[in-house]
């Protein structure tokens, strides 16, 4: 079987190292590496870089990390609840205001539509001119 070209193998080395190639790809790369010293050298360099990275140590987590984190959460708790409470209160007030406005508007519209002109005239307050007009007992 014809082996892969170096350019293709070099592109696959990173995935080969991470075992992310399919079975046939993995085999083809292995065959190429067995025959090609240049690509093998590149692969060994990649492996050595990987080992170097893995050798870097990490310091232990600082003491009292848990306590400090939980204290921070405890301190934030009321603050994080406050906006939620304010928001809920504002929404409740808006809903109540909306219901109130709806009732007022509803009753006004209902009154306006069912009232006859005569009744409307009776209900409306007379102006000063109307009160003192001739025939209304004015001077």
């Amino acid at each position: 079987m014809k082996t892969m070209k170096c350019s293709k193998v070099l592109k696959l080395l990173s995935r080969h190292l991470d075992r992310e190639l399919s079975g046939p790809e993995q085999e083809a790369v292995n065959r190429h590496l067995a025959e090609c010293a240049g690509c093998r050298q590149e692969y060994e360099l990649l492996q050595s870089e990987h080992r170097l990275l893995r050798s870097v140590t990490v310091p232990e987590i600082p003491p009292y990390f848990t306590a400090r984190t939980l204290a921070r959460i405890g301190a934030l708790k009321p603050a994080s609840l406050l906006p939620k409470l304010l928001w809920q209160t504002a929404v409740s007030l808006l809903v109540l205001a909306g219901i109130g406005l709806g009732i007022i508007l509803g009753s006004t519209l209902a009154t306006g539509s069912s009232t006859s002109p005569e009744l409307a005239a009776l209900n409306s307050e007379p102006t000063i001119e109307e009160l003192f007009a001739p025939g209304n007992g004015g001077r």
Partner: peptide, 30 residues
């Protein structure tokens, strides 16, 4: 407690500074 060491190590490797790693790790949990 279960995830702090792993997360701290991950963040430390990203920022390479113990104080920054602790701060970011705490921020992540918060």
């Amino acid at each position: 407690r279960r995830h702090q060491q792993g997360l701290y190590a991950f963040i430390y490797r990203m920022v390479q500074n113990p104080a920054d790693a602790e701060e970011l790790c705490q921020q992540a949990f918060v």
